[in-house]
């Protein structure tokens, strides 16, 4: 490839040859991890349970399936090299096999960690098989509540941020309020919110929206305020009116900052979601946490925490994907 084309070519093209040539070899470590998982499965079935647990058979089956899948991946990568990319996770698979073994031995098999505070892997899985409808219902209600609050807060935050950054008179009136009220944690509003709003659901939406609103506003505002004046000069000489300057210059230029605000807002909305659900709703992951603690069902708590982690992580991932698509014009984005 000539130097000239390398300079003007769209990014990434220089590396394609290297990528194509680097077909990964079938990862041998996958056989180790696969056999490891099969061994753990045998252990789970073979050793007698010390604790009173169901689902030992199911756990062993799942472990054996996982082990078999890894062996299949290894075998398949001889035929389809794409599968060999799974090899980069082989070390994690080995580590997980070790951790699950330790966990299983310490709980179900030898009862080192006492019940009810520590749950065995079987008990953990049993929550998903036995209490799935309730857990799913909780996840659904959490997502519903979160999205109502988050979208409301993000929308209001975005609009108020743009207004603050653009208009000096809005800034004059809104800035002191933002400075005084914004840093207050949304949870501090809980007592007021629950008697002001007609229903606890509305109060929860308000609290989540409030938690999202503050970072979104501040970062949208700072994004709009820090747009280079040169862009406005260019746009004005090209015939842009005020509306065009806001919509086609200020907002796009501020988007990188807006996404930071949306990300921070999402983080604080999770925190408020859990607290609000513990106080004011009858179904939700936060409510489930408290409910299962009340019954001393610690396995359910862990299972619920795991679902919660998956939900939060997935939502953050979705936000980052949206950002990557929207900000494709930016160089050097952080990969999530």
């Amino acid at each position: 490839m000539s130097v000239v084309t390398a300079q003007i070519a769209p990014t990434g093209q220089q590396n394609t040859e290297a990528l194509v040539n680097a077909v990964p070899a079938p990862p041998t470590l996958l056989t180790v991890s696969g056999l490891g998982w099969l061994t753990v499965a045998a252990l789970v079935i073979g050793l007698p349970d010390e604790q009173m647990v169901d689902r030992t058979g199911l756990l062993a089956t799942l472990l054996a399936c996982a082990g078999a899948a890894q062996l299949l991946l290894w075998a398949g990568s001889h035929v389809a090299p794409v599968l060999a990319h799974a090899g980069k996770w082989a070390r994690w698979f080995v580590a997980l096999a070790v951790m699950i073994t330790a966990w299983e031995l310490a709980t179900a098999k030898f009862n080192v960690l006492p019940l009810p505070f520590f749950a065995s892997p079987q008990a953990f899985i049993a929550v998903y098989t036995d209490d799935f409808p309730r857990l799913f219902d909780c996840l659904w209600h959490s997502l519903l509540l979160l999205s109502e609050g988050y979208f409301l807060g993000a929308a209001v935050g975005f609009v108020s941020g743009v207004a603050l950054g653009w208009s000096t008179s809005v800034g004059y009136w809104a800035h002191p309020i933002l400075r005084l009220v914004g840093p207050l944690p949304a949870t501090a509003w809980i007592p007021i919110a629950f008697f002001i709003f007609p229903s606890s659901a509305a109060a929860s939406v308000f609290l989540i929206a409030l938690a999202t609103w503050f970072p979104t506003t501040v970062l949208t505002w700072s994004g709009v305020a820090s747009v280079q004046t040169a862009y406005y000069d260019v746009a004005r000489t090209l015939g842009a009116n005020q509306r065009c300057l806001v919509l086609r210059v200020a907002i796009p230029a501020a988007l990188p900052s807006v996404f930071v605000g949306l990300f921070m807002g999402l983080g604080s909305s999770f925190a408020v979601l859990v607290v609000a659900e513990m106080l004011g709703v009858k179904s939700g992951l936060g409510w489930y946490l408290q409910w299962s603690q009340g019954w001393g069902a610690y396995a359910n708590m862990y299972a619920d925490l795991f679902v919660m982690a998956l939900m939060c992580s997935t939502l953050i991932t979705l936000l980052f994907k949206l950002r990557d698509r929207t900000l494709a014009w930016q160089k050097g984005l952080v990969q999530w």
């Binding site: 746009a235 090209l238 796009p252 230029a253």
Partner: peptide, 26 residues
């Protein structure tokens, strides 16, 4: 009366085509 500045000041969020089309779109 259009200005071309020392820095190209292209709008980084728009493709070259969209940049060129900015005046007409505005």
């Amino acid at each position: 009366r259009v200005v071309v500045f020392q820095d190209p000041t292209l709008f980084p969020w728009l493709s070259v085509w969209r940049n060129a089309a900015f005046g007409l779109q505005a």
